[in-house]
Write a protein that binds this DNA or RNA. Structure first.
Lengths: 206, 206
DNA sequence: TTGGAACTCCTATAAAAATAGGATGTTTTA
DNA sequence: TAAAACATCCTATTTTTATAGGAGTTCCAA
């Protein structure tokens, strides 16, 4: 008899953790060896217990799942991380992947999805339970590089400050702010402020 | 021996339903008699099975939990509804209460909270597991109610169309668009377009 | 049936943003 | 060490938004 896959869950929703445990009892080759409600406890657990696959919620009370994922991947390279995400968090997944995650599972996934995720990741594959049949609205690729000043100005614009106000707040000239604004619109391919802020929000720049 | 409290769960996240069932096995006087993943199935179940307390998720695939709550309260007055909500949905709770809910339970509630919720509601009290000690996360999380037209105009603004262009696209006057824009800014407490779009993005309105 | 939303439209002014086409010094970095 | 890239600043014009203060119509629910 083989050793079972050791699954670890980090989620601050007890209901989710419990659901996981229950569903996984039906999986022949996997078992939940532990769970944590925050990143701190998670790291603590991993230091003392061997784990094969960790499911990480993206919204955690202390640090976010993305940082936690990076941390785990660095400190415990044998642990394979999977992001656990609601429908609304999807924008985070690319960053999660960059942080070393092997994929992600939606929280409204079925038992079958869950099992498939575990099997795929155990077999060293990636798992994404995204529905590619829909046009995946993925212009995600082009995240433009903003300079530090541009980021500052962008944030100020998003806060609702006018060029005049931003100039005063950053101790620069109004025309300078205006120039940065123009450049931001160029980089984010937006024709005005509204589109700029929308694009920035989508790319998680603000 | 008394009859156990019959609990019913409506949530499209199997993990949550499962977690519920598991946690409730430890409750002496309650048992989960069923669950549904959407409102349609929920109504179907209630027609054929007696239920004491129903936990309703707010985000359901077909109709939202608020309407479902109203429907259940109207059709099955003996069923006591509790909203099941994530931290982010809180803005809905007042509407949920108006629709007849006896309170709400956060999804990251502890087992104790869950039990308390059931006991309180069974005893015909209301239950809110809000933590009023914290300064409620900024009232900014309030999701204002936008009319259909306002939503349309908001989307157009976010796309980068000017008032003139929006007027042409929606076959209305420029001043009308302008009025909607002003009202949007009022409702989202924004002093200009940039802040408006940022707030809208944050509230997931665009 | 009636009062309240929601939607429509208006005038007029002030404020801000967008566009165009520059320039100059200062850091990076290949 | 130069060429990029960055950050700063300018004039001038046009377009768009924001603000203020209205008003009429339709439709729905209490």
């Amino acid at each position: 008899m083989k050793t079972k896959l050791r699954i670890f869950i980090v989620d601050d929703h007890p209901l989710v953790s419990e659901g996981f445990k229950t569903l996984l009892r039906q999986h022949p080759d996997a078992e939940v060896v532990g769970s944590a409600e925050n990143a701190f406890d998670a790291i603590g657990f991993l230091k003392n217990n061997p784990v094969d696959i960790a499911f990480l919620d993206i919204n955690l009370p202390d640090i976010n799942g993305i940082e936690l994922c990076a941390k785990i991947t660095a400190e415990f390279p044998d642990v394979k991380c999977l992001a656990l995400t609601t429908f609304n968090d999807r924008s985070y997944i690319s960053r999660m992947i960059q942080s070393g995650a092997r994929g992600y599972l939606l929280k409204n996934a079925s038992r079958e999805d869950l099992f498939k995720a575990i099997d795929e990741v155990a077999g060293d594959n990636l798992f994404f339970n995204v529905d590619y049949s829909k046009p995946t609205e993925s212009r995600f690729t082009e995240k433009p590089v903003l300079t530090r000043r541009e980021q500052e100005v962008l944030r100020e614009i998003a806060e609702g400050y006018t060029n005049q106000e931003i100039a005063e707040r950053l101790y620069i000239g109004v025309t300078t702010v205006s120039t940065h604004r123009q450049n931001l619109m160029l980089k984010l391919e937006s024709k005005n402020t509204a589109a700029l802020i929308k694009a920035a929000a989508k790319l998680d720049l603000i």
